[in-house]
Design a protein around this nucleic acid. Structure first.
Lengths: 270, 270
DNA sequence: ACCTCTAAGTCTTCTATAAGAGTTATATGA
DNA sequence: TCATATAACTCTTATAGAAGACTTAGAGGT
């Protein structure tokens, strides 16, 4: 495997990619053989596959542009084009002189990229968490449907309250498939870290790549009164998030009920 | 003006850019003269300036890569790098064989890029608008501050109700500086179009480029009861948007009060 | 003997250039 | 009117050198 250039002769000079153009003439119709479209896109898609299957640990770099170019049988610039695309898709991060790394989760990324709630004073801080419960149970019909797991499959549910500015501000319920996160359900409450995505990544090899959030206004119910100190029926913000991995598999359901008296959701439209 | 290559000799062959590397030797210190940083970034910044000042009407294309390369005295690939950046910043849109155009507003872009409210059934539709009033008045202190205009300056306020699925769903108040939008305040209610950003662009040459939205939950007040048919105190979503032009000048304040019983705000985190 | 600093070397990504291929619109002739 | 060139444009690929970061060998001090 490796060479993307299709069914040409395997006489690659190894040090200098041949000055080919495209596979197949301009008249040909199908061109389905080894992958169609621009070379750089084929390279990109192959790299996405490899990253998705966890081939490159976040601690050490991907093969260099030169190595990848040799492996795929294309020019270094073509690999570079693909890697640039991966960079703007937030899949990898590159450091001149050091190498290219799979973009890992950490406090920074979780705070700025995946956490959009900002205190009234404008300060962006990651809240402290107080875990209420960690339980293992069977998925509801809705949960199984959105997580794309068999009905009645086991899931792990984490409930927690997050404090912002010494105030209980967010009541959060997190649901993940038990199959993907073995032993997570047995984790003691005190051992659940604040930045869960980092845990998913470091302990279970699951990298959260994108998320979709649905935001509505709700009236405070019993739990909201208990844990957030809201009046019954007071307006609160409900954020329902579905988080996905690289290949689009939904792996986490998260509903956050927020007291927006001292808190707001911020969204940038670029 | 034009040539970005600094204070070199003006002996450019016009058809073939010289094979230079950088201005100044590696030992030199300052290098402040014509602009620092990579060439492609200088080209990009120059293009942003020209686009921001409305030099290229949205109807016809920018100069071709070759022309720009000749004008700036760089290679075509360098201009291309700059234009690619502008593409991913949503400033321009490119069509192979046709040309490069300033990315214009229209129903499509307004619907998918700047309108994040989606009906419960998942359908994405731009709502119909019913304009309540168009008035000219003096800016409040807050409004003047966020719009960065002199206090007490004149502004135009548009109030309207937007219907989604034959239901009054959004109560919207829009505030823009009168100075930037002459005669907008005199527009009859029936003449206010649905997609305002297209109007800003086509009639006033103001291109909205990015926006920041702050979302909170609120209790329904008197107006909400009147126009949205909500019960007093019922929870609703308040979206406060500040829209900016290319150069970051805030030009529009928009507050949308949404009945989220049949509507939700969607946010994609990529 | 051991530690510290320095400099060369090597490996990495970044920048700039070039040329040919593909796409689209327009002009031209049957 | 329709087919066919033709011109103008962007897109793709390739190559070379520059810039940055880490490794390692060696000098010099303690």
């Amino acid at each position: 495997m490796a060479d993307l250039r299709g069914n040409r002769a395997p006489d690659r000079p190894a040090s200098r990619p041949p000055a080919r153009r495209r596979d197949g003439g301009p008249a040909g119709g199908g061109e389905i053989s080894p992958g169609s479209g621009p070379l750089y896109r084929q390279v990109k898609e192959q790299l996405v596959r490899e990253i998705a299957q966890g081939r490159y640990p976040v601690t050490d770099p991907l093969p260099s542009e030169q190595k990848l170019a040799a492996r795929f049988g294309v020019a270094q610039g073509t690999v570079r084009r693909a890697l640039d695309d991966l960079t703007r898709d937030n899949l990898v991060i590159r450091h001149q002189g050091r190498g290219t790394f799979v973009h890992a989760h950490g406090p920074e990324r979780d705070r700025f990229h995946f956490f959009h709630l900002v205190a009234a004073d404008g300060e962006r801080r990651l809240p402290a968490s107080r875990v209420l419960s960690v339980t293992r149970r069977r998925a509801s019909q809705d949960e199984a449907l959105t997580l794309e797991i068999p009905p009645q499959d086991r899931i792990v549910e984490i409930r927690r309250v997050r404090d912002l500015m010494a105030r209980s501000a967010i009541l959060e319920t997190i649901v993940v498939p038990d199959a993907l996160f073995p032993d997570l359900g047995s984790l003691p409450k005190t051992q659940v870290p604040n930045t869960l995505y980092q845990l998913y990544q470091d302990r279970f090899g699951v990298i959260i790549h994108r998320a979709v959030e649905k935001i509505t206004a709700q009236a405070a119910g019993r739990d909201d009164v208990t844990y957030l100190g809201l009046d019954r029926g007071a307006p609160l913000l409900l954020i329902e998030r579905i988080a996905q991995t690289l290949d689009g598999t939904p792996v986490e359901l998260r509903s956050s009920r927020c007291d927006t008296r001292h808190l707001a959701y911020f969204s940038d439209i670029l």
